[in-house]
Design a protein around this nucleic acid. Sequence first.
DNA 1: TCAATAGTTCCATTTTCCTGAACTATGGGA
DNA 2: TCCCATAGTTCAGGAAAATGGAACTATTGA
Lengths: 109, 109
Amino acid sequence: MFHPSIDDVRLEAVLHALSDPVRVAIFAAIAGADCALTCSTFSSVNERAIPKSSLSQHFKVLREAGLIRSERQGVEMRNVSRCAEVDGRFPGLIAAIIQAHAIEAKAAA
Amino acid sequence: MFHPSIDDVRLEAVLHALSDPVRVAIFAAIAGADCALTCSTFSSVNERAIPKSSLSQHFKVLREAGLIRSERQGVEMRNVSRCAEVDGRFPGLIAAIIQAHAIEAKAAA
DNA sequence: TCAATAGTTCCATTTTCCTGAACTATGGGA
DNA sequence: TCCCATAGTTCAGGAAAATGGAACTATTGA
């Protein structure tokens, strides 16, 4: 369960992590939630079922990119975003991506 | 030589295009230049030589993501950024990415 | 018409991604 | 304490995508 220190967060990794429609949807939900979310919250994304092995990989990519922090709490894994930290390193980046994601989601609806 | 209309530009494609270190460097250079740049400007990026077939693919990815516009001018291909258009669709996105790229480049120096 | 320059396309190799199946970890009964 | 259910991870092989050398196309100038 590796979490990079904020200084080791790479733009390349952040953009790669969020260049997947499932991952950006997961991250936007976690970033927008006021409490920690578990992996199983996302057993389906955009009306498409995601196998739990894939889901586990997606969380790993987000975690290792430095975008989320995952912590075991009993039987489940609680995920929170690291938006504030990442914003300190790359000002405005996360906000712009989340806004862009919202714009697309709105257009699709 | 396909260029998507601005409404067809996808966040996923933009982030994917810029999640590669070579491509983000190319794009930052084109976005920061005050005139069109040709492909051969980038026969090496970050002191690493890039084969021209790879370079051609990288330009194709940037073009099809909607980030640049390429136009043949005689024997060469002139590339300009579509920053203004993309900024109209996803406000602040490109600026934040370019700034983040500059922050990393500065830290590496 | 020929040569030189600038890119593109093709294709084989390498790398990465996806996901079903098996596995691990934790907590709650009986 | 033992077993079961839940939550997630790891593994492995098949599918998809990236890489780059070689051959090809397009344009210009001599």
